[in-house]
């Protein structure tokens, strides 16, 4: 342990560089993970609004209606199917408009099916399928604007997935290169230890532990930053747009902590290992 602390004190810049790069990457990962959680919440929130209503033809029997509803409910992409019989439709209409039952005498209220998609980006596909189904007459949903919105949404989903993987890959590369480089800068120490008979384990252990240490520092830093900056920010947003942001922060603190610690340690270890292997090749 004495050896390690001396190493760090002697070249603190390298230690800070490692810790800082780990911190930045983990901070990014934290932000993106939280963003993803928010995003799934939003998706859930929106899909209630993007319900599809399919009206049955007049000639469809009640028995068939139940059968069709069951079939549709079995689909993977659909979370909720509600059959609205004519009486129910009439009742709702009267409630909404405040008219008396006598004034709608003779008007027919067709039965309909309320379909809620699991992922809103699948809404258009679901609409197409329902329209092809001969039991339905009319299929209603948001219309042209919703269609455009959904297309944008699909694009966003695809883009953000690629972006996340890109950031992750790039960040890990940066850390590995920086930590490997910091071991390379101390090539001489490894060379001298090797000349006085140190085994690889002996020569490498301080670097390895140092890697774990700065990984931990970076990880804890990123976690604290999330706990004291990102989460309050989300809470603030929740107050400003009530009901819109629904991530239960307390649920996620634990796994975020674990993710940050393991991520930091892992990146520190992998980086120093690469650095050491590079050094090992160049010494006698």
């Amino acid at each position: 342990m004495g050896r390690i602390s001396r190493y760090i004190l002697r070249k603190p810049a390298l230690f800070f560089m490692g810790a800082l790069s780990t911190f930045l990457v983990l901070f990014l990962i934290n932000t993106i993970s939280l963003g993803y959680l928010e995003f799934s919440k939003l998706r859930e929130h929106w899909r209630e609004r993007f319900m599809v209503r399919a009206f049955f033809r007049e000639d469809v029997s009640e028995e068939t209606m139940h059968k069709v509803a069951k079939e549709i409910a079995a689909s993977f992409y659909i979370t909720q199917v509600v059959l609205v019989p004519p009486e129910e439709a009439k009742k709702r209409f009267l409630e909404r408009t405040g008219l008396s039952p006598e004034s709608v005498e003779g008007v027919s209220f067709p039965a309909s099916l309320e379909v809620v998609p699991k992922y809103i980006e699948n809404l258009l596909d679901i609409v197409r399928e329902l329209k092809e189904n001969p039991s339905f007459g009319e299929v209603l949903y948001g219309g042209q604007e919703v269609e455009n919105f959904l297309r944008l949404f699909q694009l966003f989903v695809r883009f953000s997935r690629g972006f996340f993987l890109g950031v992750l890959g790039f960040g890990v590369c940066v850390i590995v290169v920086i930590t490997a480089f910091s071991v390379q800068l101390r090539r001489r120490e490894v060379a001298v230890l090797s000349l006085v008979g140190a085994t690889d384990g002996f020569a490498f252990s301080p670097f390895f532990l140092e890697g774990i240490l700065f990984g931990l520092c970076g990880g804890i830093g990123a976690y604290l930053c999330a706990a004291f900056f990102l989460f309050p920010l989300l809470r603030l947003a929740e107050e400003v747009f009530p009901g819109f942001f629904g991530v239960q922060i307390e649920e996620h603190l634990l796994w975020l902590f674990v993710l940050d610690l393991l991520g930091g340690c892992g990146m520190g270890m992998v980086g120093t290992l690469f650095g050491y292997l590079g050094v090992r090749q160049s010494i006698r």
Binding site: A191, V192, S194, L195, V196, G197, A198, T199, D200
Partner: peptide
């Protein structure tokens, strides 16, 4: 390494 542990070497270029 175990061979080197049994030697004492004064290197020409010191290796410090």
């Amino acid at each position: 390494p175990f061979l080197r542990q049994r030697l004492g070497v004064v290197f020409q270029d010191l290796e410090l």
